[in-house]
Write a protein that binds this DNA or RNA. Sequence first.
DNA 1: GCCGTTTTCGGCCCGACTGTTTTCAGTCG
Length: 580
Amino acid sequence: MPTNTEIARVLEELVALMTMAEGSKQAFRVRAYEKAVAAVQAMTQPAQDMTETQLVAVAGIGKSTASKIREYVDTGGIARVVALRKQYPPELMELTRIPGLGPKTVVLLRDRLGIDSVAALEQAIADDALEGVPGLGRKSQEKIATAIQRLGLHGKDRRTPIAVALPLAEELVARLEELPEVSRAQYCGSLRRFRETVADVDIVAASNDGPAVMSHFIEFPVVAEVIGHGDTKTSVLTPQGLQIDLRVVKPGQFGAAILYFTGSKQHNIELRQVAIDRGLLLNEYGLEETDTGKVVASRTEASVYKALGLRYIPPEMREGIGEVRLDKLPDLIEVDDIRGDLHVHSTWSGDGRSDLDDMVAAAATRGLDYIAMTEHGEELRINGLTRDRIAAEKVEIERLREKYPGLTILRGSELNIAPDGGVDYDPDFLAGFDWCVASVHTHFDLSEAEQTNRVVTAMQNPAVSAIGHLTGRRIGHRPGIELNARAVFEAAAATGTALEINGHLHRLDVPSELLLQARDTAGLRFVISTDSHHTSEFENIRWGVSNARRGWVTKDKVVNALPRGEFLAFVAAKRHQSGV
DNA sequence: GCCGTTTTCGGCCCGACTGTTTTCAGTCG
């Protein structure tokens, strides 16, 4: 039976195919299906269990889409998709990946020249055949030829992991803010919304001299190629093929501009709808009265939301999945709410890079109330600690407890979850730890049922306080393990086991789309951890919190936002239960 | 295709840039 993610995927294919059929991404039918994709992604209930009537009740899903979803669930396919695939085969669809080639041009090329694949297009260019086609000239042919050359290097569908894009964006913003002409700069787009991969980096700069900013920008060392260059908008490529778009607006328009460029597209469309209902016009320069053109708000994002009669919606929530129409926004977790860090390594673990004293000192400096030292369990052969080594570390931890009386140092372990759900050490030895996080580090290729059973079994172990980096994914490198997410959430709630939200930019695990699905699981608790191996990595808490916010995680669900006493009570409750 | 205290038809977000046009279509975000 298909999950919501799979249903959303087939609807996304329908969006692409309909774009060809309609000849435009802006076609109302295309946008309607796009809305339906967002609606399915935002649902917390499995669509496969819903009747057509129930599906139609979901905002953004009408009769036609509902029946297609049922058709997909019941038969494993959608006749309309199959028919459209025949009309627009995958090889032809490949052509739309070439920047500059949209549906109209692709269809035109097929009708005029019989071009139905990238290879055929390359041949046509070699034969100099494109210039005869209406609307295409010498420049178009050259642009397309270059675009094909670097297809794969930066095709429209290539996405860059946030771990690569975020540091680059922060550096570019700092560089822009050093320019005398620039008063402020901010990266926007999906990066600001904290998506785990991005297609490009959008930056907005406030300045009264756009052309000057642009000429500085195209000289930045990171710029390998200039794609487009205007007075207010410039697009460049990095040597790695990542596209950077820079927009310059007047300082007084900065708020409206970053709101617009942060998106998401769907969020913007909904905001503009709200504006229209109020007789207002919203664009990247401001919110103005439609009749008079008088600007109502533009300097800050907050002022625009306020003028629209809305509460400020944090960037991480702006996905157009219902946040605009919420009566009350959730009280999202913030970095300042975090009181402790419960997944920390030192050089006692083979892969630790700062020693125990430095790690504890860094935690104390950050003002944390409690931390858990969670060195790797013995089953992780390269990095894990034997019982003797754990006893030796215990002596050191007791020394540090005296040195830092204001910091509660829990003695723990990051246990390895075996394929059968078992963990390192024996029950008596495990009982000596204060806090254990159990994680999957091996056997990533078991079936969904086996993986689910494995994780649920580990949760039933009274020594396991939390499950570390749930899916084990490495963003851009390794997919996560197959899991029945709903079963895992329910078992975590039932056993009082927290789910870790790992703040490493390479992990961000639990993924935010699963966090969204977990919203209505009663009693489920999270712990936001840095998984630090070096003192500098305590900063990862920012990313863990951002990922949690993307999943609409509220403060009351985060155990390491609890004051020390309440947190210790949560730990004790799990350990005293007999293993449900 | 979806939607509706302006409801069953007629709307549907808005603008920059490019290349090809003599005023605009296509693409993109």
